[in-house]
Amino acid sequence: MNIHAYERLWVAGSMVLIVGFIATITYGAVGLGITMVDDGEEPLAPDEIDEDERFGEPRVEEVGDDEYEVYVVSATFFFQPDPIEIPAESEVTFYVTSRDVIHSFTVVGTNTNTMVIPGEVSAMTVEFDEPGEYGIVCNEYCGAGHHDMEGELIVLDPEEFEERQEENDDDVDAIEVFDHRTATAGNGELP
């Protein structure tokens, strides 16, 4: 083939770019330890959510020293629990599943962002360094009320979080069980 010398140079430059981009991503995965949402969780059918040990009662749970798990159920057009309260400076794993259609669970202004697909569970482990308040949105179109689907994430100072937990334990009986069936009624998108 008759390829001009400059063009050969550009092919070499292009390969440098491509390999450089792949190398950066690899560094992010191996060097920085960024993990992708993947197939690590067992599938969970939407009609098994209510009986599921984790998602039957969506909640924040302490599972170890400075380790928390958050079980989130998304449905048209809300997240449970809402708001979600977690402590700063702790390892927090969000497990998210969907009761109906495809949603997302996206903590706005952070890289904590996943698709939520019915039948699957998304898992993300993150650590918030500072207390703060974040909006959670669904960024995948999920029906007529899609734009109303939002939640709140409150990251508390670790000590304040302790105190809140103790208060909550005191009036655990007062927690109202959320009835998702009434909440999803009126969604015209589902067959």
């Binding site: 920085l32 960024i34 993990t35 992708m36 890289n111 904590t112 993300m124």
Partner: peptide, 12 residues
């Protein structure tokens, strides 16, 4: 933009 947009899902 990306790395400073933390927290990012990571192996902790």
């Amino acid at each position: 933009e990306f790395v400073d947009n933390d927290p990012t899902p990571m192996l902790l």
